[in-house]
Each structure stands twice: as C-alpha cells, then as structure tokens.
Amino acid sequence: MNLIVEREKSLSELETRLAQLHERGIGGDEMRALETKVQELRQDFFGKLTPWERVNMARHPKRPLASDYLGALEAFDELHGDRHFRDDPALVGGFAKLRGHNVMVLSQQKGRDTKENIRRNFGMVSPEGYRKASRLMELAARFHLPIVTFVDTSGADPGIGSEERAQSEAISGCLMTLTHVGVPVVASIVGEGGSGGALAIALADHVIMAENAVYSVASPEGCAAILWGDSARAPEAAEHLKLTSNDLLGFGIVDEIVPEPLGGAHHDAAAFIGRVFDAIERALERLALLPPADLLDTRYRKYRRIGSWREDSPVRAGGLA
C-alpha cells in the first residue's frame, strides 16, 4: 500500500468526523480542536517529505500521468511506431502545440488502472519505444521543432523480448540522437525517473523536475536488494541514493524545480501542470535564441562537467561546484 495513500485515508477519516460534528451542529472548542488537529496532521504528513515519502508520492495512484500533461496541450497528434517492429504504448509521442509553440512531445506513459497498466507495460519502455523516440527526435530536428519530454518510468523494460531486441542499443541510440539534434531539448521529470530508461529521453538542454518526483540510478527496492539482500530496506536505500529534486538541483543534474501544492501535485493537477508548462515555455523561449551550434556546444559542456572526482588529492567537483 502506498504510504501517502494511507495517510490520506487517515486524514479523510478525521475530516469525515469533522463533517459529521458540523452536521449535528456541534461547534465550539471540540470542533476547533479537531480542526486544528487536522491542519497539524496535514502539515505533519506532507510538510516535509523524506526521500522514501517522495518515492511514494511519485508513485501515487492519483498523480498526474503523462496523459494528463498531453491532455492539457492545445493540440496533440500522436505519431506511432518504430517502423520496424511495433508501436510501444509505454512511449507516447507526436506533434504538439504548447502555449503556441509547435513542438515534438515524447512521454513515458503509465496506466491509471490495472488494465491500462498492462497495455502500457506500467510505463516501462521496450526497445521499439526508444527507437520510436529516436525516430521522432530526428523528425523534430529536420523540421526545427523543439523536443519536449515528460519522464515517468520505473525503468526500461527488463523482459526477454527487450533483451532479444537489444534494449541496450535502443537506449544508447536514443542518447546518441539527443547528443546531435540541433533543436532545443527540454525534459520534465514529473513522476519516477528510473535510471537509464528515464535518462534515454532526458539528456536535455534544460531539465525540469517536479518537487516530489524522484530520479535515481537504481530503484530503492533494487538498491536495497543489492546492498543488504532485503528489498524491505528500500526506505533506507532511498535516503542513500540522493534521488530528490533538491539533491539533484544541488548536483547540477536538474536545472529547475517546480513546487507542488501541500499533499502533492494531484491536489491541484490542472494548476500544477500549468506551472510545469510555464517552466517549459520559459526554457523554450530562452533556448530559441541560441543558434544550433551554440546549443550543441552548451549541451556538451553541461554534461561534460557533471561528476565529482579528485585530481591527485584536492577535490575537484564538477556538478558540485
């Protein structure tokens, strides 16, 4: 059970009781005390989230999904398929209009319910999905359309078929495409950013991250299983991995955080999506001023300096500077 959902449940129980008291006309001190308690509890639950709580927030069943972002665009015309094998429903892309800008949108799509999740493979992209992404990125570059991506995946699909069809090559191919497309690339980490499968569409000139999204080298469960042979220690692993938006802003891995309402983005999804679009729009307008050669050069230098190593003894920090 999702930790955040559990808390929302206990909160809503209190709120129901509060409503009942209100109905029966019971006011006064008792009522006020309960009201204060609900407020305090809400602040307590959601005011300052631990990394593990954010993992739960990023996986919250009501969290806005890529489809909600695509639905908020002025126009979206989906383009299907990798032209080789099949259309991967976990990776949705196509032409779109965002605040008047013609763009190419790419997104990782989880399902809202079990049935849709099965169809969309829980947002885990297969090689043909990454090949579709590469194809659409090249298309965007040919027609001078900026590339806008929405990242929400627990990771690339780890199945037999994906290995048979060269998942490594497909992800590497996506990254290679993003290294040379001479149009602005703006990535938004809106839910889960699961390792290489997320990065494949997030090598970008400007990386936006939702406050409660997570972006990690490994899933906390996987990390805990490797470190301690016990995936139940995922909350501890989440602390170690430095996967929150604040950590990543500090490392220079993300460029901007979009704050979420208390309790998470799903409490006011439309307004939140609007703020993400605001951030994307600002980035697009700034990046549009750069000629392609400068854009590519800046992109190269941006990633060139990320890291942290010692040169002999003094610590030289790339992304930490």
Binding site: L175, T179, L199, K242, I253, Y303, I306
Partner: peptide, 14 residues
C-alpha cells in the same frame, strides 16, 4: 555515486 554515476552515460555518449 548515485545520479552522478548515471549522468556519465550522457557524458560518454556525447
């Protein structure tokens, strides 16, 4: 090395 390690995928590919 967390996400700093993951970003090396981008850096080396570039």
């Amino acid at each position: 090395e967390g996400m700093l390690a993951l970003m090396q995928m981008a850096k080396t590919t570039l």
